[in-house]
């Protein structure tokens, strides 16, 4: 594994009964990158996230995280190793307040000398959640719920963040704000990010590299412009050879 590689997916397949959701998928992510994972509905993006995060076990292949094979390692240990994620549909702890939702992750991942309370505070400030510290998720807007989920994901030494459709359901202004937050995590905190997103123009502006899945297979991997003009990608998205993201 290259020294600056934080994630390597090696020949991963996932079969559900007779359905092959992922077929021999391989990709790697380098430290500090923002990588977009795209593909039509049912392409296998969320399944790949499930396998990388450990919520699902791959039928075949390996997941190498920060140099260690974590294919059989539980999700909580992967989290403590520095990999975190959000869900396509926001999944907060409804019986905990905003602050508790974030603090619980910080506590679980903190080492003995870590100032996790200070970290929770600073993450809430970064995400403009301080005024909502004592609110429960059910009282909040979708945008705030998404921010809490991101806050919960980045505390506790998060080095690799998987974002699953973080912008879906948001207004343009809310989406712009969240994109700014996500990019600042990358540029200011050095968090490596893999994003699944359907708002392609936004993704193209965020990501340095795009990986395209279709029917569970990687059909393209490269710079956004390169991928946008890829014949297979255009066919997968539009069934024709027009520019895929135009």
């Amino acid at each position: 594994m290259a020294q600056d590689e934080v994630l390597r997916v090696e020949g991963v397949s996932k079969v559900f009964g007779g359905l092959k959701a992922l077929s021999n998928v391989s990709m790697s992510v380098k430290r500090g990158e923002v990588v977009g994972l795209i593909g039509p509905n049912g392409a296998g993006k969320s399944t790949l996230f499930e396998v990388i995060s450990g919520n699902m076990r791959a039928t075949a292949g390996r997941i190498v995280l920060f140099g260690d094979d974590v294919s059989t390692v539980s999700p909580d240990r992967r989290r403590r190793a520095g990999m975190s994620r959000t869900f396509q549909k926001v999944r907060l702890f409804e019986s905990l307040t905003t602050q508790e939702n974030i603090a619980i992750a910080a506590m679980q991942c903190a080492r003995s000398n870590d100032d996790w309370r200070g970290e929770v505070q600073s993450v809430m400030e970064r995400l403009k959640l301080t005024r909502l510290a004592q609110s429960y998720p059910a009282e909040l807007t979708l945008a705030d719920r998404k921010k809490i989920e991101i806050g919960r994901a980045i505390v506790g030494r998060c080095r690799l963040l998987l974002l699953d459709e973080a912008l879906s359901g948001l207004t343009m202004d809310e989406a712009d704000e969240l994109v700014g937050v996500v990019l600042s995590l990358n540029t200011e905190l050095g968090v490596t990010i893999v994003v699944v997103e359907h708002v392609l123009p936004v993704l193209v502006s965020m990501a340095q590299r795009l990986v395209v899945l279709n029917f569970g297979e990687v059909i393209a991997d490269g710079a956004p412009r390169e991928v946008a003009s890829n014949e297979k990608v255009m066919t997968a998205y539009l069934g024709s050879k027009r520019g895929a993201f135009s």
């Binding site: 919520n55 539980s74 909580d76 989290r79 869900f87 619980i104 679980q108 994901a153 506790g156």
Partner: peptide
Amino acid sequence: EAAEIVGAN
């Protein structure tokens, strides 16, 4: 599942 994702066993 989300609890495991925040590091809870």
